[in-house]
């Protein structure tokens, strides 16, 4: 690899300055985030204040958020009903998602210590699906092994994480994405793509050149390029 070149801070600043980007572009990024992440009233206000046409109707944001909240408080049954109210095809055409919801329901039953109910549910609803796909089966087994530990703290991380809020968020995220897809709305937050693009780009560039870094969290450029 050839020696790293070094880009002077003033030169880098000039390049940053030359990048073409408008306030309207950035506003649309914000709107994209508010809509996909379900900030309904913020999206409404922003549509007004920034004079930006809403990309979806705001009611659909609300129903998506109701579903997400139901999942986050562990009421899977309610979430399933709401998804079906919104559009029955979402679960009909997406067996993996339906399985994920059923699995979440099983997790919630175990969390509440309703063991016999959990067993019954697993045998009736989940086991037949486990036969359909090895992936479902392995997930089912992982979930059932929660029962093997009296206190979840004793379980290995790979298993106890099923009881974490992160697991609920993950399920909720998958449902959210599926609903957005059914509305033919992008389901990836563009800002996340932008953050990843920065990490990817800086990683590649760092191998080749010294340049001025950005502290994204503070929104300020870092003074020294040396580590």
């Amino acid at each position: 690899m050839p020696p790293k070149s070094s880009i002077r801070a003033e030169e880098w600043d000039r390049r940053l300055h030359d990048v073409q980007i408008t306030k309207n572009d950035l506003n649309r990024l914000i709107m994209d985030y508010l809509v996909i992440e379900g900030y309904k009233s913020a999206a409404e206000e922003f549509s007004q204040e920034a004079n930006l046409a809403p990309p979806v109707d705001f009611e659909s944001i609300e129903s998506r958020m109701d579903i997400r909240e139901a999942l986050q408080r562990g009421d899977v049954e309610d979430a399933i009903i709401r998804v079906n109210d919104l559009n029955p095809e979402i679960l009909d055409t997406n067996p993996a998602l339906y399985f994920r919801l059923q699995q979440q329901k099983l997790i919630e039953l175990i969390r509440l210590g309703r063991i016999s109910e959990a067993l019954e549910f697993a045998q009736e609803e989940l086991a037949p699906r486990g036969e359909e796909s090895p992936e479902f089966l392995s997930e089912l087994e992982r979930t059932m092994s929660l029962l093997a530990f009296e206190a979840s703290a004793a379980a290995p991380a790979g298993i106890s994480e099923l009881l974490s809020p992160a697991q609920r968020m993950k399920t909720a995220g998958e449902v959210n994405a599926a609903i957005l897809e059914s509305l033919s709305q992008g389901n990836e937050v563009k800002l996340v793509g932008l953050l990843k693009l920065l990490c990817w780009g800086e990683m590649l560039l760092e191998e080749r050149a010294e340049f001025r870094k950005l502290n994204v969290v503070e929104g300020s450029l870092v003074d020294s390029v040396h580590v």
């Binding site: 880098w12 390049r15 940053l16 300055h17 990048v19 073409q20 980007i21 950035l26 990024l29 914000i30 800002l191 932008l194 953050l195 693009l197 920065l198 780009g201 800086e202 590649l204 560039l205 340049f211 950005l214 994204v216 969290v217 503070e218 929104g219 300020s220 450029l221």
Partner: peptide, 12 residues
């Protein structure tokens, strides 16, 4: 910060 993030990424 958001604008800086975009600019930094584009420049990279």
């Amino acid at each position: 910060a958001l604008e800086m993030l975009y600019r930094q990424t584009a420049a990279c």
